[in-house]
């Protein structure tokens, strides 16, 4: 929000919500020009994937049904589809390999959370 280009749709939403001035001030105050490009352009995608996968793991990790696996994979699949869409100009935006790399790392990290969660559940049951 602070460092991305203002042509993004979310800034239109901010304007609709009457938060345009506040966002502009924040962008003006906290202009992070020194940050690397991957931090500004790729990390949000990774965080999105990580967040969605983690939520799904929390909701769907109670049973081992296949459908639950699909739900958990939904974050990864949607992110990858989005990138592929950009590559084929089906979706507005710029395709970048770094985006895909960050998305996959985020997914793996959230799966790692699943392992820890399961261990915690087993430990609770033992108690």
């Amino acid at each position: 929000m602070i460092s991305r280009d203002k042509s993004l749709v979310m800034f239109t939403w901010f304007d609709w919500l009457g938060l345009g001035n506040i966002v502009s001030r924040l962008r003006h105050q906290f202009s992070l020009e020194i940050l690397p490009d991957w931090f500004i352009y790729s990390l949000p995608n990774g965080l999105w994937t990580y967040s969605l996968t983690s939520v799904m793991i929390l909701i769907r990790s109670q049973s081992n049904q296949l459908i639950n696996l699909l739900w958990i994979l939904s974050g990864l699949l949607l992110s990858l589809l989005f990138e592929i869409g950009q590559a084929t100009k089906f979706v507005r935006g710029t395709f970048d390999v770094v985006d895909i790399f960050v998305i996959i790392i985020s997914f793996i990290l959230s799966l790692f959370n699943l392992v820890i969660l399961k261990k915690l559940l087993l430990y609770k049951k033992k108690i």
């Binding site: 042509s7 993004l8 749709v9 800034f11 999105w48």
Partner: peptide, 11 residues
């Protein structure tokens, strides 16, 4: 989440 993702599409 999909709506959120839509926010980052270029206008």
């Amino acid at each position: 989440y999909v709506i959120l993702a839509a926010g980052s599409i270029d206008n």
